[in-house]
Design a protein around this nucleic acid. Sequence first.
DNA 1: ATCGACTGTGGAACCGGTTCCCTTCTGGCG
DNA 2: CGCCAGAAGGGAACCGGTTCCACAGTCGAT
Lengths: 335, 335
Amino acid sequence: MSTIADVAARAGVSKATASRALSGRGYVSEETRRRVADAASALSYVAHSSATSLATGRTQTVGVIMPAVDRWFFSELLAGIQEALFSLDYELALYGLRQGTATRERLFDTVLPRRRFDGIIAVGLQPSAHELERLQRSGLPLISVGPYSEGSSAVSIDDVAAARIATEHLIDLGHADIAFVGGSFDASALSFGDARRVEGYREALRAAGLADSARIAAAPPTMPGGYDAAVEMLGDRRQRPTAIVGVCDETAIGATIAARRLGIAVPTELSIVGIDDHEHAPMFSLTTIRQSPREQGLEAVRLLRARIEHPDTPIERVVAASALVVRNSTAVPRP
Amino acid sequence: MSTIADVAARAGVSKATASRALSGRGYVSEETRRRVADAASALSYVAHSSATSLATGRTQTVGVIMPAVDRWFFSELLAGIQEALFSLDYELALYGLRQGTATRERLFDTVLPRRRFDGIIAVGLQPSAHELERLQRSGLPLISVGPYSEGSSAVSIDDVAAARIATEHLIDLGHADIAFVGGSFDASALSFGDARRVEGYREALRAAGLADSARIAAAPPTMPGGYDAAVEMLGDRRQRPTAIVGVCDETAIGATIAARRLGIAVPTELSIVGIDDHEHAPMFSLTTIRQSPREQGLEAVRLLRARIEHPDTPIERVVAASALVVRNSTAVPRP
DNA sequence: ATCGACTGTGGAACCGGTTCCCTTCTGGCG
DNA sequence: CGCCAGAAGGGAACCGGTTCCACAGTCGAT
């Protein structure tokens, strides 16, 4: 592996000049620049990243912290972030944050201060006071993705609005008995965003004077979760709602499958609406609220980059658009 | 941010001693070690990673190359890799390899030679000659995950065997008209592993003297892909097979949903078997061949670590076990 | 002709660690 | 008592880049 000294020697110049020629900073004659470039490619020289980082103080690396990587929203988001970073020639250092304080602690106390990154994208993070202090102290530009953010730029959808719009769509169709699937017995177990979706559902009902009819079934935000909860809820024909709002599409799809199993026709006997516009939503003709995690990933990188290059960029909160996509899982209720 | 010089000064020793005290290498008295440790924690000193890398030549980072991050197999695998690396205190640098030679080229020509990692885990990669040469030249320990590997340690399942076992299960039940969903018109478009699954299917039929009844429907390895292909295949009642092997569970689940839509009872009228044991398989009572991508991730890290620490560790190919999991989507065919 | 501004280049310091090598000191053994 | 091994620690080189500063040469303006 060749070093810049080798390149300089081969081109007959000093290290300083070679460095300037390759980086394009400072005065170098065209002739010299060419010679250095030739030497570099002849030796297939590539700068050693640690040396560059040490000298410049920039790592060209972004740390990405995620609670999980194997759920649709997160993996889509990650794909977007990855793509954007790669095209800007930034490296992506990934940290999963499976529950458990031990990993969290190590991450915040020893990994972050190693000065390995130029910035951080934190997804769905609700940092403790201690963690927040650590983040501040590191002085790194931070972008939050998801509803929680404190003193940092952020990108998210408006979860309250998404759920409200979904619920209003059903109300507009004439439904009065609308259940929500994907709440939780234990509110603290709910992710921040999911909790806000419950709120949006309640808001819509309240505005329509239907507050008393609110029904929330606990379920994890997964397809099996939605399936199980729906089977239970739809089992009793007397108690059956005419419409269901799923906390996310996966839940809504689970409910759709449950309905089919139970012989309940969607949308004639039961309307179902989800939130996310998951890649499987079209297959189930699911009416839903579209959000694009991939786009949010691109946006997060855009914000981060601005703050890395101009640290005094003002804090900004980007609320991604969410639109109602009407497919064929919702209809006027049967009289 | 404090440096080791600060720590040394505070402890009243030289940089050299401070370094030895913190790393535990070389002779340092217990008394001195304590003083240095105290100074370090008082200053909340954490070593600068670029400086350490430059000095030691080790980056404590592993590069992970994946064709996609938003498919079940890959994201599960990634989760496993991430977990294992974090617990060994390695960083994980992620590279997506969305099709397109431009990104590939840049990855192999300029990112790899930057000497940013101590090792590489390449998933589902079928490197070109040029790329292979680049990989060799980098001299980095390499672990392949997936069926392709050349001169590197690897972990994978035996895709041929998995498909063979799945098909044999149907044959044993008495099926003679078994279709395969998830092949491709264009064999080169198929991933290496998927191509081998087609092979396993053919092998089983051949062994049972059913080679002539082979039927392969092209479909992308996704739930909608399986759904569409199955709708087409099952539409014509005359041509309907009695059993289906899906190239993966997602495909098989898509087929299951299609069958339900068409009013075909599973398993009484149609048996379906998948490969993977996807997290949704239990929900559909899908009989399948289990493989655990997460485990494969852990295993890959184990292999890589061995090669990083002992570069002369012999090359090893680990074939992860795959077991038939019988649920309720397969049965004896109706007479 | 003189001055200043600008171009082009090299030497050396620097980033923050690790490690080689040398010196000093201590204690055990012949 | 002398010698030697091993413990303890410091100085300096080194990893591979970038950048500050000094210096020389060119050129246009005064």
